[in-house]
Design a protein around this nucleic acid. Structure first.
Lengths: 166, 166
DNA sequence: CTTGATATGTTATATCATAACGTTTAATTA
DNA sequence: TAATTAAACGTTATGATATAACATATCAAG
């Protein structure tokens, strides 16, 4: 039984695992897992919701660290570049990666009501260069390098409340 | 042989067809296809590239119509709501729909070099509520309503130049 | 321990988007 | 067709997201 955003799970273990994975990856690749990079990752990990850069700055400010926008964006760039976090394009917001370590094209399920975000694995054969575009890309000779895949809808809990689509 | 962004094709026919489809759809659904909405769609149709709202305003200004941002955003909202245009989330930019009329979840192929954007059909079984997420969504009880699917890479023409990935 | 590379602090500004309100145009109906 | 209501537009102001540029500090390699 996997634990995801929309299942109850041991969240502090979830956080610890992600931090350790990041630390290990940085050690192995000679990347500097600096204080602020670590702190921003911790802030993202605290909840399974996407956060804007300015939300992170606010959180830092609440902790006494009055940082300017580039501080947040630089930390986020580092985390995203190295696969520790992802940007949710349709929200202009960021979320900690829940598949640390593995090379992957992330795909997200975003609840429009509670704003929870789950990162999922794609079906076999749907990894971007392969299926998914049904050969349409291959047929026209397009070479896919990266993909943004973000689904929105209702998580199990929010479906109980039958909120109409808009 | 379908014509797409990355194939040579009769582009003025392409434009005419889209405009007529929009006009017909508006007539049928009692929507007002006003001058400015039509003009914005024409601007989007002129090229198979995504354009920012401010690019559109610039184009309008060049034509003597000195409009403010809400003018562009309102027209874009109308076009997107009614399926005549789409927003490319990863570019914060807009593009005319090339599958007018049909209900669809658009998927895009974006060339990182020439900035061309093609709208494609997904493989059968990949329409969002169905496959693609490999049952992951179903398994966790998530109800998908909409999806953002945007692939980036190199179009056939730009592959000739072997531009490295970043 | 010096040198070069990387990271951080800070100011300023660019880019994308919307709220709010008054005016105009279009659609509805008495 | 005139009165009434709804929709669209023009305009000002501002909010939200993101980056350029440069000075300072810290780290890492020779």
């Amino acid at each position: 039984m996997p634990h995801t955003t929309f299942d109850p799970h041991d969240h502090s273990a979830c956080i610890q695992q992600a931090l350790q994975a990041a630390q290990a990856h940085c050690a192995e690749h000679k990347l500097q897992f600096t204080k602020i990079r670590r702190r921003v990752l911790e802030i993202l990990l605290a909840q399974h919701h996407a956060m804007g850069a300015y939300d992170i700055l606010e959180q830092l400010a609440a902790e006494g660290q009055n940082a300017q926008p580039p501080v947040a964006y630089r930390a986020l760039d580092f985390l995203v570049s190295n696969g520790f976090a992802h940007k949710i394009q349709q929200l202009n917001a960021y979320i900690a990666c829940t598949h640390p370590g593995a090379e992957h094209t992330p795909a997200f399920l975003i609840c429009r009501t509670c704003k929870g975000v789950a990162e999922t694995c794609l079906a076999t054969g749907n990894h971007p260069p392969a299926g998914m575009f049904g050969g349409a890309a291959r047929d026209m000779g397009f070479r896919i390098e990266t993909a943004v895949i973000e689904a929105s809808g209702l998580c199990p809990a929010c479906q109980q409340q039958d909120i109409p689509c808009a």
